[in-house]
């Protein structure tokens, strides 16, 4: 069998994922913390002040990675939701549902830090421009997903309904990303580009990229922890969970 297909099926089984996530989680958390320290030291201390904004621009080292994560996590959830809806894979439901609160948290951080920066720089806490509004809609979609999941008596029904909402909400992702191009917004356009030249000095760019990786690893660590706890709940009564429970009891 193809190696990729093999791992897909292997990780789709709750006990294997539980063990796999348990091994990776501390490493992901450690890498995330180390990268965050490096990135914040580089961003808040080593990077020079901006020619226009002085030190106030330093909020981008939190704001921009959070904003990227708010979109990235939704993308992960959309793939998991597609697998969950079409192939009815239990593990994919868990990943999609347990990612939602993390994504909502990053979206909330993005909106708050943006607002804090917007008041002194733009002159307003909030304006109904396309980027800000679509990001707010993204937060509401996240909250809707979490709410819908918990509204059902049967959690697998809830997860399936919420997965449909995730898939419909995918429409918002390109709107968030391209809002600054399609409309005349107060929010500035893209600074960091994968293709072409970024409008940012290298000494300011590298801490931003380090923070980008840090938030990715944090997401992995957080997701693994949440998924493990959720699996124990979902599979309670199954032999492998009973085994873990009795092992824990024997240890204490």
């Amino acid at each position: 069998m193809n190696k990729l297909v093999y791992w897909y099926h292997k990780l789709g089984s709750p006990p294997t994922f539980y063990r796999f996530a348990g091994v990776l989680r501390p490493w992901c958390l450690a890498i995330a913390l180390i990268l965050a320290v490096i990135g914040l030291y580089g961003g808040l201390y080593l990077a020079p002040a901006d020619y226009q904004q002085g030190d106030a621009y330093r909020i981008i080292f939190i704001h921009v990675p959070s904003a990227w994560m708010s979109l990235f996590i939704y993308g992960v959830m959309a793939v998991a939701a597609l697998v969950a809806v079409v192939w009815r894979m239990k593990m994919a439901e868990v990943i999609a549902m347990q990612s939602a609160p993390i994504g909502a948290a990053f979206t909330f951080i993005t909106l708050c830090t943006g607002s804090l920066w917007g008041k002194p720089m733009w002159g307003t806490w909030w304006t109904w421009d396309a980027r800000l509004t679509s990001e707010l809609v993204l937060l509401f979609i996240y909250l809707g997903i979490i709410g819908l999941f918990h509204a059902f008596e049967d959690r697998r029904h809830g997860a399936r309904a919420a997965c449909f909402l995730i898939l419909v909400g995918v429409v918002n992702l390109p709107i968030v990303h391209y809002s600054v191009v399609w409309w005349n917004t107060l929010h500035q356009g893209t600074t960091v580009r994968i293709f072409g030249k970024s409008n940012i000095t290298t000494s300011m760019l590298w801490p931003l990229l380090v923070m980008m990786f840090s938030t990715k690893f944090y997401y992995a660590a957080s997701l693994f922890g949440r998924a493990r706890a959720d699996l124990l709940d979902l599979e309670s009564g199954k032999a492998w969970v009973k085994q873990i429970a009795s092992d824990e009891e024997a240890r204490s």
């Binding site: 020079p48 002040a49 901006d50 020619y51 981008i60 500035q188 940012i200």
Partner: peptide, 14 residues
């Protein structure tokens, strides 16, 4: 309201 031009650089460079 003031619009930011999405350029970041140190004062020396500017």
């Amino acid at each position: 309201l003031a619009k930011h031009d999405s350029t970041y650089m140190p004062k020396e460079v500017a």
